[in-house]
């Protein structure tokens, strides 16, 4: 009966094929090649390699997801400011570029995942014993990196009276920390992990884990089917151990706490 029904549907579908399309948004499902937006400016997360390729945690996750969707990934370099635009302009089908899920963004971007949770955290000198969490930054000096709001979040959101020392970038901030011009660096934990690894002098990540950030996969609004398929692929990535091995591969030696690597709570696709 079921086979007969399928046959009947197939015949009818052929007859009416031209009369009705699927309508709505074009899905990432069923494509041979998926264009994926990734960062090129974040060590460990997404960078250009010498041979013009792409490498990093987000890039590896993107490869895994594309493979699960049965497609070949084609990487599109994006900067933080372009992430929504590449989706809207149809230059990318998916965006994996430290794309934080926010309520405000959700009206313009459909988020699958999150595939990773990161937290704002604190990096200190090896001999620093007085700073244990964000409260202990009161009265201490931290960097205010141009264009980043991590320092302000400590002062305004957490209402901790830290002294902000303006610096142009995280590299300078790192030098300031080592020469004791600032007492701590605070930002996203995986950026801190990258800095600590690059430095190699034993700077300590506190694993203080405040301000959770959910990093999701951006899709065009309306591609519910694609979003659900990505969520299933992320579930697989955690179940088959790929997530843990990728985190270890990119951040294993950085002092980040990997005692709990579990699939994050998804946003939902509708």
């Amino acid at each position: 009966m079921r086979r007969l029904r399928i046959a009947a549907l197939a015949v009818l579908a052929l007859v009416t094929a031209s009369s009705c399309g699927t309508g709505g948004v074009e899905s990432v499902m069923g494509k041979d090649t998926i264009r994926i937006g990734v960062r090129t400016d974040l060590p460990g997360i997404g960078v250009r390699t010498a041979d013009g390729g792409f490498a990093g945690f987000d890039v590896d996750v993107a490869r895994y997801l594309a493979n699960k969707l049965g497609a070949r990934p084609e990487f599109v370099p994006v900067l933080a400011a372009d992430r929504e635009k590449v989706l809207a302009d149809d230059r990318a089908d998916l965006v994996l570029a430290t794309f934080s899920i926010t309520q405000e963004r959700k009206s313009r971007v459909l988020f699958a995942g999150p595939y990773h949770l990161s937290y704002q955290d604190i990096l200190v000198r090896p001999d620093e014993n007085d700073i244990k969490n964000v409260r202990d930054l009161a009265g201490r000096r931290i960097c205010e990196v141009q264009g980043a709001n991590a320092g302000q979040r400590v002062v305004e959101e957490r209402k901790v009276a830290a002294q902000l020392v303006p610096v142009p970038d995280y590299g300078t901030c790192l030098e300031h920390l080592k020469s004791e011009q600032v007492d701590a660096i605070t930002t996203n934990d995986i950026i801190l992990a990258g800095l600590a690894a690059k430095d190699g002098s034993g700077l300590r990540l506190l694993n203080a884990r405040f301000n959770e950030q959910r990093t999701g996969v951006g899709l065009r609004v309306g591609d519910v089917e694609g979003c659900e398929a990505v969520n299933r692929a992320i579930t697989d990535m955690y179940q088959d151990g790929t997530a843990k091995s990728l985190l270890k591969k990119w951040f294993g030696t950085t002092g980040l706490d990997f005692s709990t690597v579990a699939v994050p709570q998804f946003e939902g696709c509708s």
Partner: peptide
């Protein structure tokens, strides 16, 4: 971090 997200995702999966 482990149990509740999984339970929540199960509910979403039924929706799917």
């Amino acid at each position: 971090l482990e149990l509740l997200p999984k339970a929540y995702n199960l509910t979403l999966e039924s929706g799917t």
